[in-house]
């Protein structure tokens, strides 16, 4: 049995127990968006919660590291908004 979450409104399939990062990468989504004109965009890098490059925005909840967080049915995710939200 697999489920779906949404990345910028687009459905992404995941297998039970899989992290958000694993599902995004399998769907070919490596670029997690650019929060600001001059800063590099989000991407999965260290895989263990250290680099914070993979942090994604979660609708109605706090941003999370996609490499640590199990995917859940119906989650609505997207790139971090500009001005470094979630870092404070």
């Amino acid at each position: 049995m697999s489920g779906h979450f949404f990345w910028s409104g687009m459905p992404v399939a995941f297998l039970p127990g899989e992290t958000i990062a694993a599902a995004l990468l399998r769907a070919g989504i490596a670029d997690l968006g650019r929060p600001d004109g001059h800063l590099p965009g989000g991407r999965v890098f260290c895989g263990i919660g250290a680099c914070q490059g993979c942090v994604v925005a979660v609708e109605d909840a706090a941003p999370v590291e996609s490499c640590l967080t199990p995917a859940q049915e119906g989650l609505r995710l997207g790139p971090l908004p500009a001005t470094g939200a979630g870092h404070d």
Binding site: A22, G41, V44, C46
Partner: peptide
């Protein structure tokens, strides 16, 4: 635990570049 170290070069910050350990963790997961 540990974090991996890297030696930087122009472009290491791009999507598609990942640490070897991070890729290994994902390989084990999936």
């Amino acid at each position: 635990g540990a974090v991996e170290t890297i030696r930087p070069f122009p472009g290491w910050e791009l999507p598609g570049v990942m640490t070897a350990g991070g890729a290994q963790v994902l390989l084990k997961e999936t």
